[in-house]
Each structure stands twice: as structure tokens, then as C-alpha cells.
Design a binder for these strands. Structure first.
Lengths: 245, 245
DNA sequence: CGCAGATTGCGAACAGTGTGCGCTATATTG
DNA sequence: CAATATAGCGCACACTGTTCGCAATCTGCG
């Protein structure tokens, strides 16, 4: 009795849907996931809302993507593709070329602040095509600077760790601002105030918050801090290179 | 009718429970959350399982902790308390003291691999007591080395970013091993094989995986890579210090 | 001691999550 | 055209974090 309960309503709406859209595909899913992440952040990414944005059911996505974790891996590799690593041209220009790479990586992370929250989970499986292309080129830069392959990798890991670490903490600040809808200016001010209060037993920290902590815009401040640490690093590389001759 | 349906059974089991245990408190909750995280990883931390381990209902926790995010912040500050930052003694020993600090921070992260997955989410709100104590001491070390306060902070941020970045990626590898129950030895071997296959168009990467990538235990390898990058950093600091005189 | 008031614990409920299963409609191949 | 493979999806399951209101207990005051 009433075995065709659910087929009845679909009779009227039939013959639609198959070619009214470019159809589902891994590429389309990844692209839409990326734009959703950029717009609303990591918490807004659920299979259901992603499906809705693609005019599809949530479970349809599983025909093209194994699970949510794999989807995130794909999106992460996608954004790694935005990082510009210059082709090795002049071997003497290694310092500038490394700086360009570092800035590009940081800029990518700041454009997509949600990556900070997944870099610790997605186990950096270095097998994505974009990440591999980027690694190849970075190794090339370090080789051109004078490292052998093993040391090139070590130096590369170190530089990448620095950039990811510092840009990641900037990004998580950006995400916090976006989530809480607070004004960054106001936020730095109130953080200074409470920090000064709490740091009663930490004279250096107290001095730091009253004297050093930025009064105005955070952008310049962050930029300066970043290049400061980057130069520290590149100086260290210079030392290592000249010591090895 | 039957308004006392649920009070009846409790009559027999009454007068228990209040003092049979140390009672709930933020400290006890944080401690239990920490041991749960260390045992089973970040995915296993739910308010319900945590409540169960404390012989309490899930919702009882909310009397002592605002929400899960705040709980995680508390636990993170707790483990920061394990990091040993030496008191500044001999100003000439800054290099060794910074190295000790860096090693201690990395060791903490490797003892608690789940921190890698939350450091990007918990916006590093630097107000936890342990984190503030640690920051104060690190600033002191850099000051003793010869930096003014602003540069001490910059150098400190850079060093911390490096350590967190590289130890974080080690930790996410450890978490992956724990989750998948795979043998690390076996895992590095099979990663090498697939990487060699995929890297058909990346000669440096291919050479890297065949020649450089570790055949045996990953521990030594990771330790060496870490001190290599750390020395790079400390060399850079030396350069900066001598340039500033 | 007794009793008001604050504090603590908790069961039920809500809205949401990722994902496996089995059915149907379509596309592809012979 | 028929047979098979594939894509889409509704339903369902087991969980999640968190709110709310009630009951049990602890606290301080008379």
C-alpha cells in the first residue's frame, strides 16, 4: 500500500537537473569549498551547506571526494598553487628570490586565514601536485645558493616553518576578528589595557605593552616583524654558506 | 498524574555522590581533559566523554568552564607551563639558554601532539599565566643578549614561530600515526615509494626521496633537522647582535 | 540549631554534524 | 534498443556543543 509514496511528487519535477548545470566534479567542489572558506571561515564549511551552494545534496559530494578531510587536503593544495616560487635564474640572487618566496607564502596564508586552523591537522602530506611543484623549486633555489640536497631540504624546512608559524599566528588573529566582528584597532587597545593590568609581576611584559605594542594599525607592525625575522633567517643562511667553503 | 516519575527511583540512591569525590573544579576538569587528549588525541575530546571520565554529566562542566574553546585555551596554557625557560644568569650564555628553551618547547609539543591542531584556532591569546611567565623570561634572555625590548620581541616571535612551525609538523605526523595505527617505519617506506613514482617531473624531489629521505628511524632525522634550523637562527641572531655595535 | 539564598549537578531537548546504505534516474556502451 | 555503470539523493544513525529548568546540596546569617 502506497509503495510509490515518494515517486509521485517527483513525477512532476522530472527530466530536470541533469544538464542545467555543469554537473558535479572534484574541481567544482574544491572551487566552491574554497570560496565558502574565504567568505565565511572554517566553521562554516559543512558538507550540507557546501552541497546547497552547488545545488546538490550533501551526500552527492561523496561520489567525488572520499570524505571531508580529503576535501580539505585538496583545497589546501589548491591554495598552495597560488604561491609564487621564482624559477632559479641568477644563482647570486638567491637571497632576494627566497625573500620573494617567503613573502608570497605569507601573503597566501593571509588571503586564506582558515589555512592556519587546518595546517596542524592535515598532516602536511606533501604529495599534492602544487605543493610538489613548489617544493621542487624551493629546493632548486637553495641548491643554487650553494647547499647540497640534504642541507637544502633542512634549510627549506626551517624557512617554511618560520613563515608558516608567524603567518599562521597572524592569520588566526584575522580569523578571530572576522568571527567576533570586532574592530582590530579597538581590539589591540583593549588587549593592551588588560595585559598591562595582568602583567603586574612581569616588568618586561608590562613595559612591552605600554611602550612597544602598536597604538595604531597592525598591518605595518606585522609586516615589519615578518621581514625582521626573515632577515634573521637569511643572515643565518649566509653564515652557513660562507662557513661551508 | 505520575508527576514524581523521576524522583521515585532516586530515593534509593540518594545521599550519595556529593562528597564521594573531590567535586568538580576547573583544575580537575583541565587535568582530566589533558590526560584524555594525551591518551586519545583531539578527536576524542568531547564534553560528554570528558564528563563521563569525571563521573559527571556533560552539562555539569559548564558550571566551571564557559565553553569548549575556553577549556582548550586553559589546557593549552597548562602545557605551556611545562616549558622550561632558564632564568637569565650569565648574559654570555644566551645562545645556550635560547637553545635549551627551544628544545624544551619542542619537547612539550611532541609530548602533546594534539596542540598542533589547536594552535591555529586558539588565537594565541597571550594572557594565560604560564604563557606570560614564559614570555617574560624569553624577553629577558634576548635582552641579556643585547637586544632592546622591541627587537627582543621580534626575535622572540621569530624563534617561537620557527619552533612551533617545525615541531607542529612533526606532531601532526605523530598524530597521524596514532590515528591510523600504522607503523612509522612502514609509513616512511611507502611514502618514499609513492613519492618517487609521483615525482616523475621533479628531478630534485625524486633524488631527495631516493637519496636523502630516511630509511630507518625518523627520530634522529627529526632531531638533526631541528638543531640545523635552530643553529641557522641563532647564527642570524649573532650577526644581528654584532652588526648593531 | 534552622532556615533563606546561592551554588552545583544533571536530564531532556535542540539544532547541527559527517557519513553509510539503498533506491532511482540518467549516461554509456554493445 | 537493451544491459550495465554511474551520479545524485533521501533517509537514518550516532554523535556533537550547548541551553534551560528543576532538584539536591552547600553557605552564611539569625
Amino acid at each position: 500500500m502506497a509503495a510509490n509514496k515518494q515517486t509521485i511528487p517527483s513525477v512532476w519535477a522530472r527530466q530536470r537537473k541533469r544538464r542545467e548545470q555543469p554537473a558535479l566534479s572534484p574541481e567544482r567542489i574544491v572551487a566552491e569549498a574554497l570560496s565558502l572558506l574565504d567568505e565565511k571561515g572554517i566553521d562554516a564549511l559543512s558538507m550540507r551547506t557546501l552541497g546547497t551552494r552547488l545545488n546538490a545534496g550533501a551526500t552527492s559530494l561523496y561520489r567525488h571526494v572520499a570524505n571531508k578531510d580529503e576535501l580539505i587536503e585538496l583545497v589546501v593544495d589548491e591554495v598552495y598553487g597560488e604561491v609564487e616560487v621564482p624559477e632559479v635564474a641568477d644563482p647570486k640572487a638567491w637571497r632576494e628570490q627566497l625573500a620573494v618566496t617567503a613573502h608570497s607564502l605569507r601573503a597566501m596564508i593571509l588571503r586564506h586565514p582558515w589555512v592556519a586552523s587546518v595546517l596542524g591537522q592535515v598532516a602536511l602530506v606533501e604529495l599534492g601536485p602544487n605543493l610538489m611543484r613548489q617544493s621542487e623549486r624551493m629546493l632548486g633555489l637553495f641548491r643554487a645558493a650553494g647547499f647540497d640536497l640534504a642541507d637544502a631540504d633542512r634549510a627549506n624546512s626551517a624557512l617554511t616553518a618560520y613563515v608558516v608559524g608567524i603567518a599562521g599566528s597572524e592569520a588566526s588573529f584575522l580569523s578571530l576578528m572576522a568571527r567576533s566582528g570586532q574592530d582590530p584597532q579597538e581590539w589591540t587597545r583593549s588587549l593592551r589595557e588588560t595585559a598591562e593590568q595582568i602583567a603586574e609581576e612581569q616588568p618586561l611584559l608590562k613595559e612591552y605593552y605600554t611602550q612597544v605594542w602598536p597604538k595604531g594599525d597592525m598591518h605595518e607592525w606585522n609586516d615589519e616583524n615578518f621581514v625582521y625575522g626573515l632577515d634573521l633567517f637569511l643572515d643565518g643562511i649566509t653564515v652557513r654558506l660562507s662557513a661551508q667553503d
